[in-house]
Structure formats: C-alpha cells, structure tokens
Design a protein around this nucleic acid. Structure first.
Length: 457
DNA sequence: TGAAATGTTGGGGCG
DNA sequence: ACGCCCCAACATTTC
C-alpha cells in the first residue's frame, strides 16, 4: 500500500456516512474529498438549490476540497495536484450526471472505481417477469419489495485520514444569491448531514406513526421534511429505510417507505428517458393545445391567482424553498388544467425555487399530474381548489399562515373569499374554476378525438 | 393521491 | 293504510 491518497469525488452525496466510495477509499489509506461546482454537470442548479448547496458544503467545512469549472478538467487537475493514485465515486442515476462521470473517467490517467448510487434497488434490478421495466408504480414497488432488501448502511469511516489538497474557498463558488431572499429558508432548514439525521430522528420519533392520516394536512408537521437532504445526498435512502424498519411495523411506516418507492420509480423512469423533464412520455401529449400566457404564469408563480390554497402553496415555496406535497399536486393541477399552461413551465419554476429540486422526482411528478407520464393521473382528474382546501385545510390555518390578507376571514370563507365580497389586497379569482374545468376537458377531448392531431406527432 | 353528474334507495310528511 | 313526493344519503358513472 502506498501512501498516495485516493480522491473521492462527491456528487449529490454530500455525507460521510453510508458513502460507499468514501468507505472503501478510507479503508485503504488517506483520502481527499473533492467537490466540483460545474453548471454544465447535468442541469444547472436553480437559485434555491444553489443556496442549499452552499450551506451543505459549509457544513462539510475543511473536510472537502472545492473546485469550480468543468468536472472533466478540474477533477483530473485536483487528482494530480494532491498526488492521488485513484479516483472513486458513487455512480449517479441521472444520465446527465453519468455523462459527466464518463468524461471524467476518460480524462483521468489513473484508475477509477465507482460504487452503488443512492438507490434502494439498483437501476434495472426491478423488472417484470418478462424482463421489461415496469410502467406502473404499484407492481413496480411490489416487485421491488420482493427483492433482497437494500444493504445495511455503511458506517462513517474511522479513522478518516484526510490528505491535504489545495482548493478554492467556498465563496469562490459564488453559490449564494446576491439578494438576501434566503432568510426564510435559513430559519427552517439546517443543510448538511447533521441536519438530515436530526430530521429523520424527529420524524421517526413521532409524525411517522400518524403519517398515513396527517401527511395530507399541510398545516400539520406530518411529513418528514427530508426531501432536500435526500436531493443532496446528505442522507441515503438506505439509512432511512433501515431506521424505519427498526421501528414496530405500522401503516405509517409502510406509507412512508412507499414514498421512497416513488423516488425509486422516478429514477428508473429518468434512467430510461433522459429527457423526462421536457418530453411527455405519452406521445399524444405533444399535440396538446397549450396556451402561451406569460402573465397568467406570473400570477401563479407569485401566488396571486385568487385561489387561497394555490396562493398559500406558491408563497410557501417562494419563502421557504419547499411546499407541502398535497399542495404541490393542487397547484400543479391548477397550472396545467385550469390555466392550460404547459407542465414544463411549472417544472422549471419548481426546479428554480425548490431546495429539494431533484431531476427525477420533479420531472416524473409533473408528468404524473399532467397525465402525460407513466402510471399518471388521468387528465380528467382536475382538482377543485376550493374543495381541496376545505378538505385538507379545514380550519384554513395553512392559508392564514401564508396568505395574511385572508387571516381574519371566517372559516366558511377562507377558501372562497370572493363570496364575502372584495377582500382588500387580495385578488379575485383569475379564472372561474368551473369554466376552466370545462375548457380543460374540451381541450383534452379534442386531443383524443381528432385523428389529424396524431399525424402531427 | 378527483369532481361532477347521474342514478338509487329509503325514511318521513302528507293527502 | 297506502301511494306519492321530496330529498338527503349513498352509489355509480362519466369526464
């Protein structure tokens, strides 16, 4: 064994525990942990994600050596600068990220080794009896659960001997926004591995028990809030899986693990369809008569639609970088079906504003709502923003939190303020939902009935 | 992981 | 006592 270090290239796996590449490298001697910020490494991160990344790297502190520029130039340069004898990393599931990894491998003159990525089940391991990929979630997840369970998480390497390597200061990555819109985020989140572990512990200590019931109530702290930590790999799904399995079984845990299943399903879809964020999986949707309406899109983005549950969700997103999952479905349905704005516009907005923006989850979920994806909600499933609000935010406390103009309204009006007359400072509904619903159904019907449209594909 | 329209049922008021 | 109507409650169908 030489004393030359192994360079461990951090991807979207900013943690030290259950990190296969790091674990195996550290078992052989000194290690250099390196991260390279590269806007051309996959899809360029949105503003909220850049803030999170900055904080997550700050949490790693001196442990990590930083670089900026094209990965295929910077990783070989760092490897040479620190005299590395090999480069290890965990393989990414996103084809755009693995393409970068292939270029890096090609550019390196020293050996490389890659390890299992952040999936519970290896991409391609979950297949039908006929050997084909699943198109529907439920059988996919059933088949996955029949496989050997995900391996136990690896411990944090001890001892972890870090070799010195010159890198950039964090500020040189220029990830922090110029304006300080991130204050609301800093209050809610603690990026980094320790924050992730604390969230998991808090969730498993209480909310998971009633998860099946409470996860749909946006005013309650009923969800795990782990999504941004998962998106940056500050915690691995294997860690979550095994921590949850260690508890007494129940509906809550079962339902929670199924959400990890959707994450797996999305990754399997993205691996097969690298353009998942832009191209509808169902080809007939390419001919959908979407509207081009920048002004309407802007009202939606800013939370000024006039529908309280929609506006609350989009303002929560803007202020915290996160939105409750139930509300994500409602606002997405509204953009796509009430406004007839292409789902890709919503996908882009979420990509830019979510701290948990994930190339697979975001694309697959927007396609799911649009009805254009695998195992998607049928197009005619159109959420009524008033009904959804009354059902899942019955006392209006979620709306009151994020739309202060409505805080004083009685419960009976908090989800339909126009029935009280004009509320100062709050806009009237930008569309009539009943009319919008009819319009959406007509547009969809035209898509199916008009054979000429299919010829346009 | 819908909503709205339409259909069915059954209790109670009433002539 | 009986048929008729109303309508809420629930079920089914349709988009």
């Amino acid at each position: 064994m030489t004393n030359a270090p192994i360079l461990v290239w951090l991807r979207r796996d900013l943690r030290l525990t259950d990190h296969p590449a790091l674990y195996h490298a550290a078992g052989q001697g000194p290690v250099v942990l390196a991260f390279c910020h590269d806007d051309q490494d996959g899809r360029a991160l949105g503003g909220a994600s850049r803030w999170w990344l900055h904080q997550s790297l700050a949490a790693l502190g001196d442990t990590v050596t930083l670089a900026r520029g094209r990965c295929e130039a910077e990783i070989p340069r760092l490897a040479e600068a620190c005299g590395a004898r090999a480069v290890y990393w965990n393989a990414s599931a996103d084809p755009a990220l693995s393409a970068t990894e292939a270029r890096v491998r090609q550019a390196l003159k020293i050996p490389t080794e890659t390890f299992a990525g952040d999936e519970l089940f290896a991409i391609g391991a979950v297949r039908t009896n006929a050997g084909t990929p699943f198109q529907v979630f439920t059988p996919f997840w059933r088949a996955a659960l029949a496989l050997p369970p995900p391996p136990q998480p690896l411990p944090r390497p001890a001892p972890l001997v870090l070799a010195p390597c010159p890198g950039l200061p964090l500020a040189a990555l220029e990830l922090m926004p110029k304006l300080d819109w991130w204050r609301g985020m800093a209050e809610l989140w603690q990026p980094g591995e320790a924050g992730a572990a604390a969230r998991l512990a808090d969730f498993l200590d209480g909310p998971v028990e009633t998860y099946q019931r409470d996860r749909d109530l946006p005013a309650k702290p009923g969800t795990s809030l782990l999504s941004p930590h998962l998106a940056f790999g500050e915690i691995s799904p294997r860690q979550i899986w095994h921590a949850a399995q260690a508890l007494p079984p129940g509906d809550g845990i079962h339902t929670f693990l199924k959400e990890l299943g959707w994450r797996e399903f999305s990754r399997h879809l993205l691996a097969r369809q690298p353009d998942l964020a832009t191209i509808p999986l169902r080809p007939e949707f390419r001919a959908f008569p979407w509207r081009d309406d920048p002004e309407a899109l802007r009202k939606w983005q800013m939370g000024r639609t006039g529908y309280p549950i929609i506006d609350a969700g989009l303002r929560q997103l803007w202020q915290t970088g996160w939105m409750h999952n139930r509300v994500r479905m409602i606002v997405a349905s509204f953009l796509i079906k009430d406004l007839l704005i292409p789902w890709q516009a919503g996908e882009e907005w979420f990509w830019d504003t979510l701290v948990d923006a994930d190339s697979a989850n975001n694309a697959a979920s927007w396609q799911w709502v649009a009805g254009s994806g695998a195992d998607a909600a049928p197009f005619f499933r159109i959420f009524n923003p008033v009904t959804q609000g009354e059902k899942f935010d019955p006392d209006g406390s979620y709306v009151r939190t994020w739309v202060p103009e409505l805080a004083h309204l009685p419960n009976a009006f908090v989800h339909q303020p126009w029935k009280m007359g004009r509320v100062p400072g709050y806009p009237p509904p930008m569309v009539d939902h009943a009319l919008a619903r009819t319009r959406a159904l007509a547009a969809f019907k035209g898509l199916k009935d008009d054979p000429a449209q299919h010829l346009l594909l």
